[in-house]
Amino acid sequence: MDNVTRATGTVRSRRAAAVIRFGGLIGLALAVFALVLLAFGQNPLRAYADIFRATLGSPYGFSEVLVKMIPLVLTALAVAIPAKIWLINVGGEGQLFIGALFATWGALHFGSLPAWLLLPLVSLLGFLGGGLWALLSGILRAKGWASETISTLLMNYVAILLVSFFVFGPWKDPESANYPQSAPFPDAAVLPSLFESRVHLGALFAIVGLLLFYVVMSRTRWGLEMRALGINQEAARRNGISADRYILLLMFIGGGMAGLAGMGEVSAIHGQLRPSLSPGLGYTGFLISWITMGSPSGIVAAAFLISLITAGGDILQMTHRIPAAAIHILMALVLFVVLARRSGTGGKK
């Protein structure tokens, strides 16, 4: 494969080769899982057909895959952005929760504002919440007090408990019969959905985030500086690039992305703040970001794949009585196959 791409050398054929390789990998993963399905006495053919029909085979199914992708792309960006200078942000989950917390405060506090004012405000608060939460870890790192890996991880637990504290305590909806949830968002604070589906305006955040990420990294001086920092901090520092400034900035922006994911989930999906806000979206985003080494197109592809497996897994449970545990194994198999590929680029990154 390597020789082929080098010989032809054009961008298009390299992309085509990448697509073929990616498709081949997925095919291999599906083939391996087919063996698992056979072990469960199921017909893999029927199983895959059922998954296809219920996900990509209908507008509804496809829209639901997109719904699932929105927070994953954002939490993947939350990891990929700081990763450009080798910061390991494990804290997407916590940043998502704090983003949702801030957004909820805004939605309930300024509930009487019109939507055109309230929505940007709530989104901004979501971004700010996640960003500030991550910034704390950035400060600890820049000061040399604690590595961001450990502080972001520890602060995940704190963030989730903080949200629990608010929804079990001061923010508990008096109308909800004391169930742990905030009052529902006013209509003006609910992100509008698109095309009669559950795909919501949060998709815009994800798309804009991806585009900006791509443009900044590949087309600007900042991107150049960040790459320099990522390769050799000492050399970069000697050239007058401030590592500390980038640490703070990138942690803030990364956290803000996760915060937006939290804002989208709480506003468009749940409609009120709950401790069960996220089934580990931050960790899945972490996985997506590192499996693709932060490439924007890779993030989209991996988020798509994982959403597809999740949605498809439910179908397998329904139609083929496959236990949820086997879906985890399917996920792992696909990931293993993708990870264990020989990287064809020859480069280190």
Partner: peptide
């Protein structure tokens, strides 16, 4: 038909609708 380990939120609605 049953589905286990379904988180609250986006997944729950999809699972019910698919059922």
């Amino acid at each position: 038909i049953q589905v286990e380990n379904v988180p609250e939120g986006a997944d729950a609605e999809r699972v019910m609708e698919n059922m």
